[in-house]
Amino acid sequence: MGDTQVRRGGLRPMLSGLLLIAACVSPTAEPSGAGREGPMHIEMERTGGVTGVRFAATMDTDTLTPAEAAKVRQLVDDSSFFRLPARLTASTPGADRFQYRLTVRTADRSHTVDISEGALPAALRPLIDWLMAEARKPR
């Protein structure tokens, strides 16, 4: 169950659609992947579900193109990630839902959120979907 390191080449197909939007929203994308906050590091883990299979992926903005890195920052900003509580749980009973653990680390802050599938904010879906696609790749 090793983690997948997101590589440059692997990102492009996933991000191509999103980048079109990013280009409009963030016309002044940073000149390098580091950006004004320095490198951003993201870890994602999905566990649970009836399969019980763990998927995980990590991503560093300094391995991305400037446009890709800008898009990742935008996704993190859009979800107000650093203001989310440490735990987002669903109020409904039930079993076999997925559990997500997402960590975002920059030079000056780090935040980890545990999220039940039923409580996953819509704004986090694109980031999760993208990282899950990476986690599904053979290694």
Binding site: G49, V50, T92, G94, R97, F98, R136
Partner: peptide, 20 residues
């Protein structure tokens, strides 16, 4: 790629076709 019980009913996904 999951099936679950939501407290009231059963729910089934189609799987991704690659792994499941």
């Amino acid at each position: 790629d999951n099936a679950f019980w939501n407290g009231r009913q059963m729910v089934y996904g189609d799987g991704d076709g690659q792994l499941f």
